[in-house]
């Protein structure tokens, strides 16, 4: 395999990992606040269809990304209202949200399945993009890829360096203690849930207007579930989420190449590999129970209400 092929594979790996990075980092923030939203797949696919429709109708791709984020956040708002205000079971509500999202997106996307779209283009940076190898590897992506990097750094800084992030982690660790200190648990959780929905929406938008610029029913293909698994297997640490997402992207791309080489392995088995490999690797690097206890939000999935007023 020559250098150019390798660079191509690596660049394709990054491109394949981006939707997972968005969705999983968003879900990480949600879970750090103590809420388990299993509706990531649904929020992603709704974000994807709304972004695609906006792009197809207006031709404004940046507007499409914003609409995708808002659609994801809208789905998350429903989830938040049901679980945080009405205190329904988070697991059941999240599952319902996914089913609802898949059905809704299929329904409203009916007329768009054969529409062609000029997808989001790589941005060309003078000098840098034309560098050999490095230019292709680091400076040849569309704007959303760079946005994902910004989101990663921002979320890491927010969680571990900012006071607001400290409050969010405190709420996820012990909502009743946080309440006793005077923090507004439900509001913090609402904001986290909305942010998670918007991030999932952007992840979906990336799929439908940049990665494969078309709309197909169920085009998220389980990426929302992988994003959820990534958060858990990465033991709620942003760095490991990033590693897991890149790994998933890498194996996805690698198995395409293997299929292309005509190796006699059933294609179904190869398609399964990215999911299997990601989970195995993350389980192996995250076996330390102490680390899990330290990073897992202790109140995850438990409804909290202020019973004193």
């Amino acid at each position: 395999m020559d250098m150019n092929t390798l660079v191509l594979i690596l660049a394709a790996t990054v491109a394949a990992a981006i939707p997972l990075i968005f969705a999983a980092l968003g879900e990480l923030v949600v879970e750090k606040s103590g809420v388990l939203n299993l509706g990531v797949e649904g929020m992603m696919v709704v974000g994807a269809v709304f972004a695609f429709m906006t792009a197809a109708e207006t031709g404004q791709l940046w507007l499409a990304v914003i609409v995708g984020a808002l659609a994801g956040a809208g789905m998350a708002l429903m989830f938040g209202f049901i679980t945080l205000s009405l205190m329904a079971n988070q697991v059941a509500t999240g599952l319902a949200l996914t089913i609802f999202g898949i059905g809704l997106s299929a329904f409203i996307g009916q007329g768009y399945t054969s529409v062609a779209l000029d997808g989001l283009k790589e941005i060309s940076i003078p000098v840098l993009s034309s560098l050999p190898i490095v230019g292709k590897l680091l400076f040849s992506y569309n704007i959303l890829v760079y946005l994902a990097v910004v989101a990663f750094v921002g979320i890491w800084w927010f969680l571990y360096k900012s006071r607001a992030g400290l409050i969010l982690r405190a709420v996820g660790e012990s909502p009743s203690s946080a309440h006793a200190l005077g923090y507004r648990v439900i509001r913090v959780r609402y904001l986290a849930v909305l942010f998670g929905g918007a991030m999932a929406g952007v992840g979906g938008a990336y799929l439908s207007i940049a990665y494969t610029p078309l709309w197909a029913e169920g085009m998220t293909a389980g990426r929302g579930w992988i994003a959820l698994a990534l958060v858990v297997f990465a033991t709620w640490r942003p760095g490991r989420v990033l590693i897991g997402a890149l790994l998933f992207g890498g194996v996805t791309i690698a198995q395409f190449h293997v299929q292309g080489l005509g190796v006699e392995i059933p294609s179904q088995f190869l398609s399964m590999l990215p999911y299997l490999a990601t989970i195995i690797v993350l389980v192996l690097i995250s076996r330390d129970a102490g680390v899990i206890r330290l990073n897992a939000p202790a109140s995850l999935g438990q409804p909290w209400h202020n019973e004193l007023h």
Binding site: L166, I167, R169, A170, E173, S174, L181, Y183, L294, N295
Partner: peptide
């Protein structure tokens, strides 16, 4: 409080910062 309102996975200083109202 009788049952401490502390956050186990945070440091002493972070726990105290959470109870102070201004940014520290």
């Amino acid at each position: 409080f009788q049952h401490f309102s502390l956050f186990d996975t945070l440091t002493v200083a972070q726990n105290i910062a959470l109870a102070l109202d201004q940014k520290q």
